[in-house]
């Protein structure tokens, strides 16, 4: 994972709450077996409508998505994060994220920055009044800035540290491989395995 310290890019106001992962990428786009190439599926149903924000300049080239509350609800599909990143988004701002989406984002280097809804509303107005306004998201300082607007955002400290350092979770966990082995030695023997059971 590439380290993330700060990003500046065009902000995209998405005035919707409950943007579920079926909207971010419909199930029919989940059939690829690769980790890339999901940009076509991003908001596929909405992008069929010419008036959708991402079909308008200068939002088409946006990289900071400013969304309503409860972003990323529903399915656990990490494809939602891949689709956003494949399209070019580096940050999503919302007042509330679904747990699994936020976790998936943190694994892939997409910053899910939690802001007050009042700040989201201010940003929406700013981005709508002055399309093309660039938004700077500074992960070191945990701030989001655009023109005169400035606000703090929340992100859990551990995810922030991993993003700043660009660390691979599996590599970190494998430092504890001895502890994992010891734990396995203590597990009750009656716990099930998936080894086929023979009749009898």
């Amino acid at each position: 994972m590439e380290p993330f310290t700060s990003h500046t890019g065009v902000g995209v106001p998405l005035r919707r709450s409950n943007v579920d992962t079926d909207q971010i990428i419909p199930a029919v786009y989940l059939k690829r077996v690769t980790r890339t190439g999901f940009e076509d599926g991003l908001f596929a149903a909405w992008r069929a409508d010419d008036s959708f924000i991402l079909n308008q300049e200068p939002f088409r080239g946006g990289s900071v998505l400013v969304a309503g509350p409860d972003f990323g609800t529903g399915s656990s599909r990490e494809h939602a994060v891949w689709a956003l990143m494949d399209y070019g988004f580096r940050v999503v701002l919302s007042s509330r994220f679904a747990d699994i989406f936020r976790g998936n984002a943190g694994k892939q280097g997409l910053v899910a920055a939690q802001c007050e809804q009042s700040d989201i509303e201010l940003l929406w107005k700013l981005l709508e009044n002055e399309p093309g306004t660039e938004v700077t998201v500074d992960l070191t300082a945990k701030t989001v800035r655009a023109k005169d607007f400035s606000a703090a955002f929340q992100i859990d400290d551990y995810t922030r540290w991993r993003l700043l350092e660009g660390l691979d979770d599996i590599g970190l966990t494998l430092r504890n491989v001895d502890a994992i082995g010891e734990f396995e030695g203590r597990r009750p023997t009656w716990l099930p395995t998936t080894n086929p059971v023979t009749a009898g």
């Binding site: 990490e78 976790g103 599996i170 504890n176 994992i180």
Partner: peptide
């Protein structure tokens, strides 16, 4: 609970997950 694909890989490799 449900997990994303990065976590699927994590469980495959380590049989654990880092969780708050």
């Amino acid at each position: 609970f449900g997990i994303g694909t990065s976590e699927v890989e994590h469980v495959m490799a380590t049989q654990t997950l880092p969780l708050k």
